[in-house]
Design a protein around this nucleic acid. Sequence first.
DNA 1: GAGTGGTCTAGACCACCAA
DNA 2: TGGTGGTCTAGACCACTCG
Lengths: 238, 238
Amino acid sequence: MLARGTGIAVWRQVAEILETGIADGEWRAGGRLPTEAEMALRFGVNRHTVRQAIKDLVERGLVRSVQGSGTFVEAPPLAYPIAERTRFSDIVMAQAREPSGRLISATREVANPAVGAALELAAGAEVIRLETVRAADGVPISWALSAFPAARFADVAESFATTSSFTAAFRAAGVADYVRAFTRIGARNADAIDAERLEIALGRPVIEIEGVNTDLDGRPIQWARARFAGDRVRVTVG
Amino acid sequence: MLARGTGIAVWRQVAEILETGIADGEWRAGGRLPTEAEMALRFGVNRHTVRQAIKDLVERGLVRSVQGSGTFVEAPPLAYPIAERTRFSDIVMAQAREPSGRLISATREVANPAVGAALELAAGAEVIRLETVRAADGVPISWALSAFPAARFADVAESFATTSSFTAAFRAAGVADYVRAFTRIGARNADAIDAERLEIALGRPVIEIEGVNTDLDGRPIQWARARFAGDRVRVTVG
DNA sequence: GAGTGGTCTAGACCACCAA
DNA sequence: TGGTGGTCTAGACCACTCG
């Protein structure tokens, strides 16, 4: 089982065994690993050595430890292709996962210059500003700050709150289809807000995507800045 | 100094103190922190507690531990804006760091379909394929796989090997200026090759950027897929 | 060879979760 | 209340770097 004194650290071997077990489906996504004490006994190593192995898996995004509860297998990263027609729920469902969304806050306010320009609004025009979190199988994938022209989408907050879908909210406002007109991408490390919204540790990688959607006449209908949990998605563009 | 029994873990307090010291310039980029044993003594904690604090800083990319040598302060992340005219050396020098480059391999071969299409080459046309690593102050920032139309840039490998600059290599081939025509971005975790080339740990975040440069007539002159050390750069697009 | 970080063990207590 | 992961200490030995 474990080869000692081979130059390969014992904790790496333990991590390797656990990783293989996860890959082989011995523990499914969302499932719980044996307790640290149990693994220490099983592998014949100290509990701290098991902890070091688990810490490695946590860093690599394979498992998640919850104090008082256990260590759980994380779902494999969600493939997230950004294209002209990107629909969160379609992407998630295509991978046999359950999409959901949550409205954090909704306000109506005068657009700041940058957002106003992106939405091609007159100075002083109002927008509906939403903060939302989107998840797959209940695990947060991204959180976003969105702005919609208030004149056209006065009820977007209520629509999203009931349907968890921007597509549905647009349809309710008479926009049957829409496309992505502009995309800007960057990578950052999670700040406190990212960490809280996405339920990830401070400093974990976050992919930031800013974009504008337009209706089929080319009129901007949504500006959004979304931050994705880098460990849970594989974002591709192009 | 340290407040025990306050609900804030001692190792976090130690990490906080070290982080503040780094931010305040007590230890400069590239400088060495006190040894683990010395810090344990100074803070009145066990060496393992210091190790935990250091591990946290390592994960967050603030310091780097070298066995047998010490723990060193990492340089702050390099701001890397991707724009129509992106020149590695300009970006690095603008931040008072020293750019360098290294040629890993150079081959001449028939373009694969995807690269051939990106470069708008006829089927069967040849490309020069380069593997390069780029660094700032000697620390690897990115490594890239590039392809150039062999017909126009037969000597690009030699040019790059001597100048460490694609801009210079293009100029030698009669292309005085060029622009970025296409960009695709994604995030991944370092595989073994990424880790070796970038001198980072397996699984650290890597930002992948695929792009095509064209001359001012719009003819493609370079296809490249670059992978950036996510801990060392702050890539922005748009 | 002296000094550094890396690994492993051992034992204790705490904070948190679920029942 | 019992079990879980989180923290901290203590001590030992190893692997590596550098003069």
